[in-house]
């Protein structure tokens, strides 16, 4: 990574460049509109069906809808950052960017800033549909929602940095990870159920993920308990470690990219 402070002008230029692209590629709004709504419809309806029986079924209703809305914080932050980078490879714009004074951190900040706008739209829509269609108000989680959402946001960005690192190293063939990696993380994170529901063999893996503790905290609050700060703290530490590892990995892969002259794949 380059040294020195970040330039707001360059961060803003990157965010605006991606806004132009989105404006002219409306199909990319699918990620922030159609899929989130389909997810709420699917998990909301399963929850409503299971909840008819009362008892623990009612709990499951909240777990499913709360889980899918907060999962979209991870999904939207991850997908917007990684596809933002992939856009540069698809349009063969990577070399154009690499020969400017733009620092890696400025690039990531610019795409993340643009991604925040998409995230607000995507998560806002899921929350709105859950309220209108299933009378589930995610804000009932209360202030505990804020640290949990912030942790999930950082986890999404960290996974995206890892994906970008893999694409830099292995080329476009690895870009399927941008969409696929979350399918592996989701079941292991106990988004909709306590981690004890997973096969015992997977418990250590699940417990090592910051997302597991974030969703456990969400369920505790939905059950009417006070905010379990110990789980929130575990999730925050895990997210910080993950972010550190992702940055380290990305820096290493960027070094390999420059060393091996992989820019020739995109120019």
């Amino acid at each position: 990574m380059s040294s020195g402070s970040l330039s707001w002008i360059r961060v803003r230029a990157i965010a605006r460049r991606h806004t132009y692209v989105l404006k002219r590629s409306p199909h990319r709004l699918f990620d922030v509109t159609v899929w989130p709504l389909v997810d709420v419809l699917l998990f909301g309806s399963i929850g409503a069906f299971v909840g008819q029986g009362g008892g623990s079924g009612e709990k499951a209703f909240g777990y499913l809808l709360g889980g899918i809305i907060l999962w979209h914080v991870v999904y939207q932050s991850q997908i917007s950052l990684s596809t933002g980078f992939l856009e540069e490879t698809w349009s063969r714009n990577l070399l154009n960017l690499m020969v400017t004074p733009l620092k890696e951190a400025e690039y990531v900040a610019g795409v993340a800033l643009f991604g925040m706008a998409k995230l607000v739209v995507g998560v806002g829509l899921t929350a709105l549909l859950a309220l209108i269609a299933y009378a589930f108000d995610v804000t009932d989680i209360g202030w505990g929602l804020l640290p949990i959402a912030a942790i999930l946001l950082f986890v999404g960005w960290s996974i995206a940095l890892f994906v970008i690192g893999v694409v830099l190293r292995f080329g476009s063939g690895a870009e399927a990870l941008a969409w696929g990696i979350l399918f592996a993380v989701m079941p292991l994170s106990g988004v909709f159920y306590p981690v004890e529901a997973l096969p015992g063999l997977l418990h250590p893996v699940a417990l090592a993920l910051p997302t597991t503790h974030a969703f456990a905290a969400m369920r505790a609050i939905l059950d009417g308990r006070s905010i379990p700060w110990d789980r929130v703290a575990l999730a925050a530490v895990g997210a910080a470690v993950l972010a550190g590892l992702a940055l380290l990995f990305l820096t290493k892969m960027l070094g390999v990219f420059r060393k091996r002259g992989f820019i020739s794949r995109y120019a």
Binding site: R10, R12, A13, I14, R16, Y20, V21, S25, T100, P101
Partner: peptide, 14 residues
């Protein structure tokens, strides 16, 4: 997906 003016604005700012 950029007009010439937008492209040059982006790089001018970069």
């Amino acid at each position: 997906r950029l007009r010439v003016r937008e492209f040059l604005r982006t790089y001018g700012e970069l």
